[in-house]
């Protein structure tokens, strides 16, 4: 019966850039395929819905030992998470992750950016990080570090024009990601510098 099937252990959540994955150690039963089911409980369920738990259908009777909870953990409150093992009709006790998880603790990595010089135009391209992100882009002419300019970018669907550069001058750019929902920012990306094309009149 159930007593033979132990609860999953080492239950933890990996959360990076507002994407949250629950993981656990497999329950080994020789010659059998063990399946797992995951449930979550937000602060609302604890305080107003009799401590009810909500199953995650994508992670019901799954053989995987990881479950993507990004869509479900979409509020900045404390969540409890649990998983149990299942073998045929038998199921283990619930294994509940120690403590609570709030998305405010997600780890934020610096954005990936590409800086381009297109003639005299300083352009930047940022890799999207998800709907809850926007970006602070800082740019300056090399040697004029005191005159840093900034641009807040909410959409990162394409290349963005930052500035028109002076002929032959070098310009530098760095960026950080910000998540308003948790009011936190990543560290800055490494600085990238590009040089504007030389002055054409010099060659006439």
């Amino acid at each position: 019966g159930d007593a033979l099937l132990p609860a999953p252990q080492n239950i933890s959540i990996l959360s990076t850039n507002m994407k949250h994955f629950l993981t656990w150690s497999p329950v080994i039963v020789q010659g059998a395929t063990v399946r797992y089911s995951v449930e979550f409980q937000g602060e609302y369920e604890r305080e107003y819905a009799n401590g009810s738990w909500i199953p995650v259908s994508e992670c019901s009777s799954t053989t995987a030992t990881v479950c993507n909870l990004t869509e479900d953990i979409s509020a900045t409150v404390a969540y409890k998470l649990r998983v149990r093992a299942e073998l045929g009709a038998a199921s283990s006790p619930w294994g509940t992750m120690k403590g609570f998880f709030t998305r405010a603790t997600t780890s934020l990595t610096p954005p990936v950016l590409r800086v381009l010089a297109d003639g005299y135009h300083l352009l930047v391209e940022l890799a999207a990080m998800g709907p809850t992100f926007h970006f602070l882009v800082l740019y300056w002419r090399k040697g004029q570090e005191s005159k840093v300019q900034q641009k807040v970018m909410r959409e990162v669907s394409s290349v963005v024009h930052l500035d028109t550069m002076e002929a032959g001058a070098e310009y530098c750019v760095k960026a950080q990601a910000h998540v308003e929902a948790i009011n936190r920012s990543s560290s800055f990306s490494p600085t990238q510098c590009v040089r504007a094309q030389g002055d054409k009149s010099m060659w006439l």
């Binding site: 107003y48 819905a49 909500i54 509020a75």
Partner: peptide, 28 residues
């Protein structure tokens, strides 16, 4: 939060998950 969400539990797991998401966002 107090009156509505708790009486909206359905037989549909997807609907329940989305209601939970809204309820917890409203709580926050």
């Amino acid at each position: 939060v107090d009156k509505v969400f708790k009486h909206c539990r359905t037989e549909d797991s997807f609907v329940n998950r989305k209601i939970s998401s809204i309820a917890n966002s409203f709580l926050s």
